[in-house]
Design a protein around this nucleic acid. Structure first.
Lengths: 235, 235
DNA sequence: ACTTATAAATTGGTTAACCAGATTAAAATC
DNA sequence: GATTTTAATCTGGTTAACCAATTTATAAGT
């Protein structure tokens, strides 16, 4: 178990090293937007690493929109200048792992916005899906069972109804970590879940009525407990 | 050029198909959190695709926190139940590409929060970095040159100072797309840039004074033009 | 000299064989 | 019969050879 982690970290370190060197290369060779990077084979030789490692690093930079690989042609510098490239690579290398506090903090921010947008933009289809998620949650809680998953699915249904794909994507990214941390720290106990039903219903009604202000208000109240909790944990 | 795109889409479609089938498998076999998925080799045979494709699909589900691969051991279902798993896989498959409007909308939301947090949590080191970014921006604008990159780096410096790694990560994800779209739609012309100097200065002063309310207010004013623009574009 | 046709080299992507560690099954030992 | 040893198998990860499309270089044709 120890070794796996060690090798994974090793692999991450070499990836960071490669990303850093690619950054230097773009500087040194003064590669402008649209210019072609040296081939993966050359880079692997130059950096004395395997081509797989180079590909991994390029993929990461592709994810952050800094490079674009085109099959049988090459890897190209994205249409952002050298300065932004440098700054962003530096930031990416320094990026810390998300901790629970940052996750909850961000979730609350995202949800207050998504619920507002959802109440403005929801279609009848959206409303139907939200209702289904709400019913599933209510049913589970009334049976006295754990309903963390149904809880989050209700919130994801709202995110989808917001009509903002970026916000929706971000909600999807943080949700699993939220769930596991909730279960780890036992954030949601049964008594809170009963209260949750009423709060979810209030949110649903506001979205149904298409009242953004009320929806945001109800979401805020819903997060009240969580908010307190979030600002009391150490890390 | 046409073919590349076509093959990329094909590859994405098969990946979606695999993700969908993995979801069905988890349902059908009733795999609980922590259970082991069939091996990559078996899955590739069962789904009649290459192991690479299976690995790609698993990597995506790993990114969204639904699976975890452990070397020489297997791929395991994350510690979120079957219900959340189903809902999230469905959402991931339906996720649309981010459009400019959703990007700007999300950016404004994130920045109003990060600047508030930055003014509360910034260290002296953070302040120094923000100042450097501000100076670089000012210098470029006064020379009459394009300063979109320096502009965004100033904002990224604020995101870093927010002390919230999740928010910081999200800002990094959307920044390149923002830059390219800005240049595509010519959002920032020279006259706005001059005004931008004052606005950036006001934001910096508020962060320096550690005044979260003022910082948020100044950021809001800074986004005023962009805000109008964002809500006028079609898509 | 210029365009077209052809061939060689280069590219990112794919794949089948291989690797080291982990797991399981079988065998040996007491 | 229970415990330890050993061997065989299975795992995700890695790699070197291969692929098809592209790009560049060369040759041919006019």
């Amino acid at each position: 178990m120890k070794l796996e982690v060690a090798t994974k970290i090793d692999s991450l370190d070499t990836q960071k090293m490669i990303i850093s060197k690619i950054g230097e290369l773009i500087n040194f060779k003064n590669l402008e937007p649209g210019d072609k990077l040296p081939s993966e084979r050359m880079l692997s030789e130059k950096f004395e690493v395997t081509r797989s490692n180079v590909r991994g690093a390029i993929q990461k930079l592709e994810f952050y929109g800094l490079l674009e690989s085109i099959p049988q042609s090459g890897t190209f510098v994205a249409n952002i200048g050298v300065i932004a490239m440098n700054g962003m690579i530096e930031d990416i290398l320094k990026l810390e792992e998300p901790n629970f506090k940052s996750l909850v903090e961000t979730r609350i921010l995202l949800e207050l916005k998504t619920v507002r947008l959802a109440s403005l933009r929801r279609t009848d289809d959206d409303l139907k899906r939200i209702k289904e998620a709400l019913d599933a949650y209510t049913k589970k809680v009334l049976k006295g069972e754990d309903a963390v998953q149904e809880d989050l699915l209700f919130h994801l249904a709202l995110a989808k109804a917001s009509g903002n794909s970026t916000l929706n994507n971000f909600m999807l990214i943080i949700t699993p970590e939220i769930i596991t941390n909730f279960e780890k720290y036992h954030v949601c106990d049964k008594s809170l879940a009963r209260q949750g039903i009423e709060e979810h219903n209030a949110i649903f009604d506001a979205v149904k009525k298409q009242d953004p202000k009320l929806a945001k208000q109800k979401m805020k109240e819903h997060f009240n407990v969580l908010y307190q909790y979030c600002y009391n944990i150490k890390k």
